[in-house]
Design a protein around this nucleic acid. Structure first.
Length: 248
DNA sequence: TGGAATGTTGGAAC
DNA sequence: CGTTCCAACATTCC
């Protein structure tokens, strides 16, 4: 379900709840004081990377869908909701198998919006600076770092590294300044490609590397490995994606 | 059909 | 005390 663009879609689908008053809250999360939510209005619905944020009057709720989380608007799944918000006229907003945390209400004080690859406030220069501050980091880990590229996930990693022809085991500091810039730029470009394709239900069709077995550029087999500190699966072409510095 | 996956956290281990 | 590792969580798909 969730990389940043999917959370933007969630936020857009949930827009109608902004300004509404919660009449009843329930769920199986231990992190939520359900009784305290009733009567509070939704001040804003926001997102930061993979975080979906429900700002109320005296607190905010942070929903993270992790790998398997899901939600329904004015519908229910055949499962116990982690969080269920009920509104007038029988409308409801349900979340399943996700992580819910309660936060103080002032989200601007808690989030650096400029790190979110989906945000209007995205700051490529700041991301580049954070990237360059970590020269020993592998690019397969950097592309998943939520402080640098909030909202980027494993699909981003594989697709962007393939696009910019960089091997996942390259170190950040070994990339040229131009390659580092290209990496930051393409994370943002791919974010909106992902969003557009996801909305059109054609995201997978556009994968060039992620889950693929053959390189679409040279027809050689892709390599697959669980690389870096993150140990997430990487798909890459050793001919088309250069390793910096050269291995060996 | 068992295993793996668009992810993160918290606590143990070192 | 910092870091690193690993289990845990939980759903869907092949």
């Amino acid at each position: 379900m969730p990389e940043g663009p999917s959370i933007v879609i969630l936020r857009e689908q949930a827009e109608g709840f902004a300004g509404r008053t919660i009449r009843h809250a329930s769920g199986n999360s231990k992190e939520v004081d359900y009784a305290a939510l009733g009567g509070q209005s939704i001040v804003a619905l926001r997102s930061w990377g993979k975080h979906f944020l429900i700002q109320l009057q005296d607190r905010a709720l942070r929903i993270h869908l992790l790998m398997f989380g899901s939600y329904r608007i004015n519908e229910r799944k055949d499962a116990q909701p982690r969080l269920s918000l009920g509104f007038d006229d029988g409308e409801e907003f349900n979340f399943y198998s996700c992580s819910v945390k309660t936060l103080p209400p002032d989200l601007d004080a808690q989030y650096d919006w400029s790190a979110d690859v989906m945000s209007d406030q995205w700051n490529a220069r700041a991301a580049l600076k954070k990237l360059r501050a970590r020269p020993d980091m592998l690019v397969c880990d950097a592309t998943l770092d939520q402080e640098m590229f909030s909202g980027a996930g494993n699909i981003f990693k594989n697709e962007v590294l393939f696009r910019i022809r960089v091997h996942p085991l390259s170190t950040v500091g070994a990339l040229s300044a131009a390659k580092q810039r290209e990496l930051v730029e393409q994370m943002r470009v791919y974010a909106f490609d992902f969003l557009r394709w996801k909305k059109a239900f054609v995201l997978k069709q556009h994968w060039l590397a992620h889950t693929k077995r053959i390189c679409p550029r040279c027809d050689l087999p892709f390599h697959k490995g669980y690389l870096g500190k993150t140990q997430r699966r990487s798909f890459f072409c050793v001919k088309c994606q250069k390793q910096y510095p050269p291995a060996g």
